[in-house]
Nucleic acid binder design. Structure first.
Lengths: 338, 338
DNA sequence: CTGAAAGCGCTAACAT
DNA sequence: ATGTTAGCGCTTTCAG
């Protein structure tokens, strides 16, 4: 493996010049630069990131912490972030906090502190104050995606507004008996996302003068199966069956559609269904939904971090609202006359 | 940020002793070790991975290269690998080769050569000879998951045998007109997985004395939508409709089940459906399938690498066959009498 | 614009 | 068992 010294020798310059020529920092004559680049190419020279990091204190590596890997939202954010980083010559080191608290602690107290990363992106994780402090002490920028973290720059959609928009779409179609399939207590831990979405739903109802009916709410985990079961309860009611269902995610909405089908209830004629996400499968099911753009969220998180890594950047905690958009497909329709 | 020197001072020993005490290499008296550990804890000291890597030549970081992030198989392998690595104190740096050839080249010619990783796991990627050579020159162990790479240690299921097993299950239930939804040319690039699965299917048919009927094969991409469309063609045939469908993946099998439903063809009474994977959604759809265990595959890849990183380990190229298992649920049943 | 040389923080001989 | 010290490969003052 060729080192900087060999390149210097081959190019007939000093190692300092090689370093400058290749990094673009400091002035180098065009002639010298060309010689260095040619020598480097000939030898297949690539800087050792360790040596470089040790000398500069910058690793050109970003840590990304996610709670799940097998869910559409998270992998999409990851994809966006990875691509944006690659383009900038950065590596992405992945931490999946699937396991217990011990795992989480070891990530925050060991892994992230080894000076392996310049900054951290936390996706849908509510960090403790201690965890945030630890990162701040190390002067490592931190941005959160998917929910506000106190004292941290975060990017998130406005869950209340999104849920409200979905519900208003149903109301606008003349629906009044609108059920909601939301998250259970367990899925509420991080950022109370289910709670926020439920609030948006209730606000929209209130604005329309509809009293919320607790029998029209069903809690479930964020899976197809869970929502399928919940929807069966909702739709199996012999009286006053809802004419529309707002599910807190597209996967749940798909579960609801499948439940309706199995009960012989036609979508959208007899029941309208709307979700949140614009999941890959949403077009296939003709699912109306409020789209969010997790890939873009990942890319945006990277841009924000890059700014914060500029020397002298301000790192004010702030919440950036991300875009969302109603996408009407064929799972929602005007409410039938009673 | 506390350095090794401060720990040494606080513990009243030399930096060498601190290093030995904390890494476990070399002998340290229990007393000294205790003092060091206490001092390190008090100061919140964590070794700088860069300095350590530079001195030892080992990074305790593994590169994982995947072609997709939004597919069940890949995220499952990733999950398994990540968890196994975390347990061993290793980091995982992720490279997603989503994009074009330029992206791929930059990963292999720049990123992986920066001495940031000790070894590489390639998931379902057919590396070129040049790429393999580059890695070998650097003396970096490489293991492939999901298909054989010439000259490299790889872990894979026997796709031919798996497809054969699925098909034999259908034959054993009395089916003779068995359709196959496989991959299209585009999805065949890496390891010819669709081709192998189709071969297994045809072998099983041949063994049962059934001549393969080209009209019973449909190519599609590996999505629900693609397989749904393909299945509609297969099942919409007015004559000689297949009594069973073997899909090359569970997602495709789900597409087939949904297509059958939409055509009013009952599963499994009128058509049996089987897939490959044991996807998260397989139980929900009652899908019979041949399970593979990608999480375990990721973990196994890590074990193999760890062995290869032992000094003096043999790095013989070899193909390790991974386990698979038929899981019969409710989407397959005995063929109805004609 | 370029070179010499002092580190970056840790590890591993080599001594003791 | 522990301390001393010479690097690991690069970057960056500081001179020139």
């Amino acid at each position: 493996m060729a080192g900087i010294e060999e390149v210097a020798r081959l190019a007939g310059v000093s190692t300092a010049t090689v370093s400058r020529a290749l990094s673009g920092r400091g002035h180098v004559s065009p002639a010298a630069k060309a010689k260095v680049e040619e020598a480097a190419a000939r030898l297949g020279y690539v800087v050792s990131s360790n040596a470089s990091s040790l000398a500069t204190g910058r690793t050109r590596n970003i840590g990304v912490v996610v709670p799940f890997l097998n869910r559409w939202f998270f992998t999409s954010v990851l994809e966006g972030a990875q691509q944006a980083l690659l383009r900038r010559g950065y590596d992405l080191t992945l931490y999946n906090l699937a396991g217990d608290g011990a795992e989480r602690r070891s990530v925050f107290e060991q892994f992230l502190l080894r000076k392996r990363v310049d900054a951290v992106i936390a996706v849908s994780l509510e960090l403790t104050e201690a965890e945030v402090r630890r990162l701040h002490e190390l002067d490592k920028p931190l941005v959160g995606v998917g929910g506000p973290i106190p004292g941290v720059r975060t990017l998130t959609i406005d869950d209340v507004a999104v849920a409200r928009l979905a519900t208003e779409h149903l109301i606008g179609l003349g629906h009044r008996r609108i059920a909601h399939i939301g998250g259970d207590r367990e899925s509420d831990v991080d950022f109370h996302l289910p709670t926020n979405r439920r609030q948006g739903y209730e606000q929209a109802l209130a604005d329309a003068g509809v009293a919320p009916d607790p029998r029209l709410f069903a809690a479930s985990d964020f899976t197809v199966q869970g929502a399928y079961d919940a929807a069966k309860q909702l739709l199996g009611a012999p009286h006053d069956r809802p004419t529309a269902i707002f599910a807190a995610s597209d996967e749940m909405a798909i579960g609801a559609i499948l439940a309706a089908r199995d009960l012989g209830i036609r979508v959208p004629d007899e029941v309208s269904v709307i979700g949140i996400d614009d999941h890959d499968l949403a077009p296939f099911f003709g699912l109306s939904t409020v789209a969010q753009f997790p890939r873009v969220q990942g890319e945006t998180a990277v841009s924000v971090l890059m700014e914060q890594l500029e020397p002298g950047a301000v790192r004010a905690p702030a919440v950036t609202q991300l875009p969302y958009e109603l996408r009407v497909r064929s799972s929602t329709a005007r409410a039938q006359e009673a």
